[in-house]
């Protein structure tokens, strides 16, 4: 159980700032994800935590120990690489017990530890197989076992599920969560897949352009995005530009919308953004309260079988609304309808 802290960390490559004043205090024993698009700096941050790169500035701490200048091989972090990085010249159990081999532990002990871990990842009979006898999913698990063999202080996984097919990915997500809960180890997963981040983690760290955008639980991130980037990157949303008023209303395109603005954006003066999620919206032919609706035109109807996605527009804004599948909608593309707004919605600084 290790608590990871980063204080004012910078990482520069030449004139390029890969990470800018990163401050993080991550709880121990939790499942944490670094979420961000390609090139956001999440992998740089990850390599910094692992000790594979060193920070240009700032301090990295494991509990109370300053590990900023400590090389990777002394940090005792377990890593799972995107392509697994299993040693091709070693078989399964030799891969798992590689760290113990470096410590010159007797063979029997290494073998026993490897068997123990294979038990843990539910692949008890493959100890003597070579790597090319394994499927992608099995390699993934062996990589996990290898990373856990040394009882690491931190468990780091870089895009662990990206190489698996959709079905297997979902299955492995659950297994990883179970494993993390059983071991209670502080775990960091790097991913660009917001769905994965939302379903797996206790804490999500959203990163873009080398800066931490938001840290919070998946629900917080989804419901109360603190920047337009987060709102856009996590889930689908429509951001309305306007001014949030003291009384909770939102002034938008000459209308005063009665949506009950919540959030920390400044009131009355500076422009803010109102974040609307598909599940907060509904389409009606006629609304009772004009201050609670926006007139829209239906652009596109897509029946996905499980649900129907309706795209409606107002001026430059596009809204996604989800309707249950299986019965008639009562409207079609091109119709003009009213978009019903929720009682409460999140506002943020523009």
């Amino acid at each position: 159980m290790t608590n990871l802290t980063l204080e004012n960390v910078w990482k520069r490559f030449g004139s390029f700032d890969a990470l800018k004043h990163v401050n993080l205090d991550l709880p121990s024993g939790k499942m944490i994800t670094f979420l961000g698009p390609s090139g956001s700096g999440k992998s740089t941050l990850f390599r910094l935590v692992a000790g594979l790169d060193s920070a240009s500035e700032g301090v990295v701490r494991f509990d109370d120990t300053d590990v900023t200048r400590m090389p990777a091989h002394q940090r005792n972090v377990g890593m799972v690489f995107q392509n697994y990085a299993l040693f091709p010249h070693l078989n399964v159990w030799e891969n798992i017990s590689y760290g113990l081999m470096l410590q010159r532990r007797p063979k029997a002990e290494r073998r026993a530890r490897a068997e123990e871990l294979l038990e843990l990842i539910k692949l008890p009979h493959i100890a003597d197989r070579t790597l090319n006898q394994l499927s992608g999913g099995q390699r993934q698990r062996v990589a996990i076992a290898r990373a856990l063999a040394m009882e690491p202080r931190l468990f780091l996984l870089d895009e662990p599920l990206s190489a698996l097919d959709a079905k297997l990915r979902e299955h492995m997500q659950n297994e990883l969560c179970d494993l993390q809960q059983t071991l209670g180890i502080t775990t960091i997963v790097v991913t660009h897949d917001q769905r994965e981040a939302m379903t797996m983690s206790d804490v999500v760290v959203v990163i873009d352009h080398g800066e931490i955008q938001q840290v919070g639980t998946p629900l917080e991130i989804y419901r109360k995005p603190s920047t337009p980037f987060v709102a856009d990157f996590v889930g689908t949303s429509t951001l309305l530009e306007g001014i949030a008023r003291q009384d909770g209303t939102f002034e938008f395109e000459g209308r005063r919308l009665n949506v009950g603005c919540i959030g920390e954006a400044e009131r009355d003066h500076t422009p803010s953004l109102l974040c609307l999620r598909p599940e907060q919206l509904a389409l009606r032919t006629q609304s009772d309260d004009p201050s609670h609706a926006i007139p829209v035109e239906v652009r596109l109807i897509r029946d996905l079988g499980s649900e129907i996605e309706v795209t409606a527009s107002f001026g430059k804004y596009e809204f996604l609304v989800k309707e249950p599948s299986g019965h008639s909608l009562g409207y079609s593309e091109g119709d003009r309808l009213d978009l019903l707004l929720p009682d409460h919605a999140h506002v943020m600084r523009a």
């Binding site: 000790g51 002394q74 972090v77 690489f81 010249h89 590689y98």
Partner: peptide, 22 residues
């Protein structure tokens, strides 16, 4: 694959050990 070297380092291998074992 250079990831193998990082993997070995994360498992506690020094530069010399990485050369010898990987």
């Amino acid at each position: 694959d250079e990831d193998l070297l990082d993997a070995a380092a994360s498992l506690g291998a020094t530069e010399t050990e990485i050369f010898k074992t990987v």
